[in-house]
Write a protein that binds this DNA or RNA. Sequence first.
DNA 1: CGCTCATAGGAACGACCGTACACATCGGCG
DNA 2: CGCCGATGTGTACGGTCGTTCCTATGAGCG
Lengths: 186, 186
Amino acid sequence: MTGPAPARRARRHDPERRDRLVATALDVIAERGVAGTSHRAVAAAADVPLGSLTYHFASLTELLAAAFTRHVDTVAARFDARMRAAPDRAAAMEALVGHLTGDLLASGRDLVLAVELYAAAARDPALRAVTQDWMSRSRRSLERHLDPVTAREVDALVEGLVLHSALSTDPMDAGQIRSALLRLAG
Amino acid sequence: MTGPAPARRARRHDPERRDRLVATALDVIAERGVAGTSHRAVAAAADVPLGSLTYHFASLTELLAAAFTRHVDTVAARFDARMRAAPDRAAAMEALVGHLTGDLLASGRDLVLAVELYAAAARDPALRAVTQDWMSRSRRSLERHLDPVTAREVDALVEGLVLHSALSTDPMDAGQIRSALLRLAG
DNA sequence: CGCTCATAGGAACGACCGTACACATCGGCG
DNA sequence: CGCCGATGTGTACGGTCGTTCCTATGAGCG
């Protein structure tokens, strides 16, 4: 018999833990909101001890900032790829419809993360820098096909469409979205 | 000499306390966010004992719902008054610019409350009903001068403009806002 | 091979939270 | 006037939180 194991600590070698924690934090934010995102919640979701979080991130705010920064990077890169791939303005508008209906509004996850980020950014300057970076990248992507003034207007409309979709019981369908965008930038 | 007062309780007759608590809760939300709004924070701001909150509101969620409902009522009524006062479509568009630059974007308070409500509504069905009521009233006000399809598009654009203004370092000025709205519904 | 320090792990502290509850008070009605 | 239920008040409980701190481990390097 081995007897009662002397509570050996199972130390794990885990060189990419920091990255994994950022990804897990995004999942937790999407599921429970920023308000429900605690060190303990992320630790449990990532299956690491509590102390590991304060080792890798100086504060909870820093963890949130890292998570939202990664999310913005992903979405902005995806959107810029769509805009880069569009050969002309008409194709760009269609790609925009696809971005809205396909990427953003499909899962609900991106929607929720966006709204959580907006609210958190309203109070945290570090997160406001993240949203400003997002807006600026988004506008630059649009400016591949639109003049700066129109790009800004379209960007605002897209933001509003996203928000309405997140909160409305009967969100606009692809056709309504297309015609709204075309009216502004057709 | 009165001697050491035997810790008399200073009971206060305060028939409108419930209303005052709702108003105070809105102030606290605007200042510290939903996340920073606790029974204790509201009690301190309203100068009432902690127990008074649980007497007047069954739960913190109920208090938040009452506060946001009141806020939406105020803003929606103000907006409808503006639309009702506009004699024609052109005046309505100008009133819309005034609503945005004057009412919403001026103080920052309405901006913050809106974003806080959006984020909270994403997770709480009761609050989602409040946002849906807001959207529906807003659209009905716009429909005094615009067809339903256009009203919906304008409503979404307004939402986006509000959000961009809340988060941007260089928000659009009245002229830019006007031209964006006119492009969509001129 | 042996040392060392970045990393992993676990427990604890003090603060704040929502809520429940027992008790005090008094306006208004019978 | 005398009661009583609506309202006001203070305290306590159990829980979660961010953060700190000490210890343990082992990968990489000299």
